[in-house]
Design a protein around this nucleic acid. Sequence first.
DNA 1: GCCAATATTTAGTCTCGCCTAAAGATTGAG
DNA 2: CTCAATCTTTAGGCGAGACTAAATATTGGC
Lengths: 260, 260
Amino acid sequence: MPARPTPPAAPPPLTEPVEDYLKAIYELETRSGAAATSDVAQALRVAPASVTGMIRRLATQGLLDHVPYRGVQLTDLGRRAALRTIRRHRILETYLTQVLGYAWDRVHDEAERLEHAASDDLIERMSAALGHPTADPHGAPIPTADGRVDERTHRTIADLAVGETVRMLRVSDKDPELLRYLAGIALQPGVEITLLSRAPFDGPLTLRVADGEPVVGSTLAAQVLIEPLPARNAQRAVTPTGDRNTTTDARPRSARKSAR
Amino acid sequence: MPARPTPPAAPPPLTEPVEDYLKAIYELETRSGAAATSDVAQALRVAPASVTGMIRRLATQGLLDHVPYRGVQLTDLGRRAALRTIRRHRILETYLTQVLGYAWDRVHDEAERLEHAASDDLIERMSAALGHPTADPHGAPIPTADGRVDERTHRTIADLAVGETVRMLRVSDKDPELLRYLAGIALQPGVEITLLSRAPFDGPLTLRVADGEPVVGSTLAAQVLIEPLPARNAQRAVTPTGDRNTTTDARPRSARKSAR
DNA sequence: GCCAATATTTAGTCTCGCCTAAAGATTGAG
DNA sequence: CTCAATCTTTAGGCGAGACTAAATATTGGC
């Protein structure tokens, strides 16, 4: 039995907790600019000391850089791994809602477990079956297989001026109760929203959504991301809802670098 | 914060290794009548000592009974858990082939990972989307959600008499190479098989399958399970392929206990 | 610029599954 | 019936990933 030369020594696949850490750190990093130990601990519902230990391990594996008492930063390797997991999660969420009839407040937990078990092949088949969607049911952009994603930041309903009309873009997938509430007032990605009035001192806002006029608190308002309406006489031929959340790479290579 | 009375103290969900052990033990038990430590070790590619340790843990959890140096036997609880995992596995395999276009030699590994992550809800949605199939792509019967399954044993091609015509029922899902080979000679569940001739001393068999006449070795022949052709003028109204592998419980409750 | 509050890390354990090596039980050949 | 070959179990460890308690670093208020 001749010992095979062990060609490039395949890197062992990441464990489930490792994927969760990378995903959480990625999200903290892009959202708040930095990822503190305690933030990661809170996101993963784990003791801070556990985070310190895991961070040391991830650093030795070249997935992130760690300056003690300062914080962590994903390396390219770590970021790619995080985006791979996020892609899986969002394609799974989309598939579960579009094909299997899940309500949008029920897909998060399911996707959270499946994202660690599904093969790349399965994810790509699901993506193809969906026509390669660029956004999940909550409006979050789906990273491409080669790890690119639209990371632009957006305004929220809380930032609206009275009388302004915009389109709902996105909301977090993590709070089922919020999602059910939003569905109840017809607030879902793609719908048009007009701010009719706002009470002073961070008070409730009155919106026009579809044919309703829901009144929402400022906390909720700050969680709903929006985008401008498309130009009135669309010069770029796009479908009304198909264009939101287009990742930079979903467009042909020739068209890149122009946006952002 | 009043300490909630902790109602019935929900049993913690089984871990992935535990599900794998129960599944392997179930299969050894129903196939060979008993499950020896070393058989389990071989099935799970784990050291025998590890099996002893795990078995002790499973016994304390009431999932199986263990007589040292003798063997193990699943309790009702353990059998139910095993069948739940097997149901998941087989529905997943069916879904992957029928809906997502997987080849039948590629579904085993994928299902093996997903079966631990999918919720009951997901599995039932997939089952419904498939019209509640009773057999997986390899012909294995799918246990019902309440844990019943057709456990009848069957003859194999190796048992055929020359000139006999039967229907292929089932083959193991675990050997991709075998599955590809079978697909190449049109051997798949549901097809009719006639034994044209057999060489003496356990020699190769010549079959008629579809419009081919493949010659197969006795090892392969012993792995392909068969069933009798349905009665010529079917008195029970059944679809030709729909009746194979019907679990005892797929029929209305009123019809149970009659078969077997 | 000091000190207290807060954040982070270290130190020491724990459980789960796995391993190897060695000891003990069973079985079958003669 | 006995002994060697073959299980099976015990003993002792290891790595991942979590925890608590205690030590240490940073920061913000004054």
